[in-house]
Design a protein around this nucleic acid. Sequence first.
RNA 1: GCGGGGGUUGCCGAGUGGCCAAAGGCGCUGGACUCAAGAUCCAGUCCCGUAGGGGUUCGGGGGUUCAAAUCCCUCCCCCCGCACCA
Length: 905
Amino acid sequence: MFIEIEEKWQKAWEIAKVFEAEKNKKEKFFITVPYPYLNGNLHAGHTRTFTIGDAYARYMRMKGYNVLFPLGFHVTGTPIIGLAELIAKKDQRTIGVYTEFHNVPLNDLLQLTNPQKIVEYFAREALNALKKIGYSIDWRRVFTTTDEAYRRFIEWQFWRLKDLGLIEKGSHPVRYCPNDQNPVEDHDLLIGDEASIVEFTVIKFKLEDSDLIFPCATLRPETIFGVTNIWLKPVRYVVANVEGEKWIISKEAFEKLEFMDKKAKFIEEVESSDFFGKKVVIPLVDRKVPILPAEFVDTDNATGVVMSVPAHAPYDYVALKDLGVDIEPIVIIGTDGKGVPTKEVVEEFGIEDQRDPDLEKATKFLYKKEFHTGIMLENTGKFAGMRVLEAKEKVEKELFELGLADIFYEFSEKPVICRCGTKCVVRLVKDQWFLRYSDERWKRKVLELLEKMTIIPDYYKEEFKNKIEWLKDKACARRKGLGTRIPWDKEWLIESLSDSTIYMCYYILSKYINDGTIKPENLTLELLDYLFLNRGNLETTKNSGLSDEVIKKIKEEFEYWYPVDLRSSGKDLVANHLLFYLFHHVALFEERYLPRAIAVNGYVSLEGQKMSKSKGPLLTMKKALETYGADVTRLYILHSAEYDSDADWRSKEIDGLVTTLERFFNIVKENYLRETGEITLLDKWLISKFNRAVKEVRDAMDKLQTRKAVNSAFFEIMDDVRWYLRRGGNNLSLILDDWIKLLAPFIPHICEELWHMKHTTFVSLEKYPEFDSKKLDLKAEKAEKYIAKLLEDIKEVKKFVENPKTVYIYPAEDWKVNALKITIDKGLSEALKELSKMGIDKTEISIFAKKFKNMELIPNEKELIEQNIEFIEKETHLKVSMESEKIPLERKRSAIPGKPAIFIC
RNA sequence: GCGGGGGUUGCCGAGUGGCCAAAGGCGCUGGACUCAAGAUCCAGUCCCGUAGGGGUUCGGGGGUUCAAAUCCCUCCCCCCGCACCA
């Protein structure tokens, strides 16, 4: 394998500082990939995104650009803290996953009991892996998001966003564990990670002649017009003072209210049966309806008080039937059906009673149908004629305005159980800081930017557009985790997706921070304003304590490198990070600093299985490198799938690549230093084909299609080379300089090694091969194609001959060739006329007329065959003869230009 | 449900009106080489065929066209996102 070669060149690159990018006269290209989050080792997913980025960086460098390709590490947020806790607790599952899949030795792992150690460990591991795979990263700029200087940078950013009015306070619901006193994420859950938070509308029904309120929870407020009664479960309920109102709710609901930012005071417990038969008033409608008992009511769902709409809610319809009460359903929504919708549905689903599990299905079915196609009927007052999906919102809005409604959050699925075993609740987090992504002006600016940007693949532009429009305000503050505190409200930490939006400009600073030129305290708001926003001047930045020269230099470098020319990322970041990246840039920077292009690549699965950091399976970059080495891994991941589709890592396939690469290595090594002799037609063919490949590779790489690029640059040229050698080609080295260069972005170490057999420069800094149409040689290509086809035909015919010895080859007679020329110049009829004038046999003329479309002019066909007799004999194990006497007439007749007659006996 | 993507020969996948039974990779079969294995090289890998040929294919159905994997209509199926999680 190539491990030694790889280490050798990595060292050489480092010593020669070939990837340390500095401002110069050349045109710049700034490419970034998202910095990895270090709650584990880098894996095949990172390998893919980063390798694509690196191949492109190397490609652009060889195309003559001054390329900056930096990387840092992301560690802010909660997962690292969570991980530290789990390791400290010696959580078996975690230990299993990290030793088995992240390849962390058990002894090392058990040391990682606090976030700091985790960050240090995985940063070291990541750096190792990233260097071993040979990325052309400028490592002088590396940083970690908990660095003091980075925090300064983030604080500055948040101040400026706040100045712009883009950060404000609000509240929002989260899944919450009352025991841990913390919001819970998917992986914190034992059961229920599918559950989402649903917003119930609570409609306040007043008890007749009383101030007692029955808060009915519903997802269909528009059906209020069809209410015939309300339901309580025949159990004990709670009467509570809820913000000045007297509510009757289930016990469970009462407990939940506390988390929903409602001041609820317990008054007493009551039997719901005390109210059965009494009447409540439907708000807005002002109709009186009875309170009735129902077993199907789930007291653990929302308020535990339910309004009954028997015409549109199958549960209600069935419950009324079960109860035997004589209440007529009130139909208020019209669809294509005629009668009472619930009646039809219940019959269709064959539902017996309210315990029938199919009731749920029937409910969903009807809900969907009515929501999407339903129209409000005349008995719904001013909402009559409206579509249901519109009426729903309007009714809700009106109820709220009149103070007749409230909101109750509930899980869509239950139960939701935390890993600690506690049942989770929905909690409304108050006074949370939000980024106002819903701001219309902000969105419009982002959309304008998007229009101007290049998005690869292009259909993602549409996807981005939709996501931008759909984006809502985002809570950007957390109680727990690593990160930077909100500078004006130190209780809160800045959420980790919000602190990684414009850090690409920080790479300009980090070089100076790492070499000690800048200390964290130098990064004053005024300095950053000046550097990045063109606000102020050298005078206003005096408080940084930096010299004018340093500031000028940094400023110049920012002006040079920004904006980011390409951000290449996995598709998992489309709906979050990449959006925020655009939003924050647009909000803060002047137009000329805005991102130019985004590329999105697909996932990587392992042997058909989804990878998972927290559960496995997982293939770490380190493991891949140990097993296959850098170049094999790189070539494999670049070739395994085209950028936008998902890749599946299969060890069987990559195993085969090792030998293919060795073959390449050996072929080049054996031929590279050989003197070239006289140029033959075959050599011209090779050069011509190679040139076509160059064009294909460049075209593909310009669109970041690495699979296509590798296919052309490696596999297809390899096939041509094999044919060339098989044909006795002797001047392979004619293309080897260029072939090595062509492959350098993909397999840089091997290419560097081979290159140095002949040169002393770095191939990584050489000029990428150019397509040269003058090197195309159609004549040579035609000739090779002709020979290949002839060989194929002979082999085909040979199959049908018993004990074959000799192949007679008979190229088309001159008259056919001439006739074809005339046909091409003057048309068929002219040619046929000529032929009869010449006295050619009528049968022959008619054969010609039928077949001329399949004919092709090959210069000197006969000569070409004669030159290749030896080759054909070797390949077919037949004697080749050009004598025509032995060939039967009907065989001879089949000879056409470009396809000689063959006779084997 | 909404939005985005997709269904091609054993598998992964290229292919967007004729040059397509359809690139490339992988797998499998046979042969050459070898003491042998591996590697390498060659051939085959939808069906039929004692002459380089013919037939049937590109999720299902229908249509446009001299001509469709490729265009139109319709149906079926699969994947991803829908958030506060990096």
